[in-house]
């Protein structure tokens, strides 16, 4: 089975982040955000290729404004990598697959 992308909500966010046994990259996005749509297929590819190494999850900021506020998201897409339950890296803005993999190299 290929790497699945988990949709996180206010309810399951904490438990998913804390129970992850690998780094988890959370994509804060929204339906109305063009650049978010551009990186969605790239994140799917990374989820497939890096299955077991890094997990990919998404937060729709329309449905979870509390999470966006908690992590002080002011621009999307914002990607936050959580390691052992703590934010370890933050990337703001859309970027290509190669740049993204470079930025994630410490986790993969």
């Amino acid at each position: 089975m290929s790497g699945a992308i988990t949709n996180l909500s206010t309810e399951n966010f904490e438990s998913e982040i804390n129970s992850a046994n690998q780094p988890i990259l959370v994509d804060f996005w929204a339906e109305w955000c063009g650049p978010c749509k551009m990186i969605a297929p790239i994140l799917e590819e990374i989820a497939d290729e890096q299955e077991g190494v890094i997990k990919i999850a998404k937060v729709d900021v329309d449905n979870a404004p509390e999470l966006a506020q908690k992590f002080e998201i002011m621009s999307i897409p914002t990607l936050i990598v959580f390691n052992d339950g703590e934010p370890a890296k933050r990337l703001v803005g859309a970027q290509g697959k190669h740049q993204l993999l470079d930025a994630l190299s410490e986790f993969i």
């Binding site: 063009g34 650049p35 551009m38 990186i39 790239i42 621009s75 897409p77 803005g93 859309a94 970027q95 290509g96 697959k97 190669h98 740049q99």
Partner: peptide
Amino acid sequence: GEPSSTGDQPG
């Protein structure tokens, strides 16, 4: 082009 948020992205 490659995804970006500045204006040189696909589309």
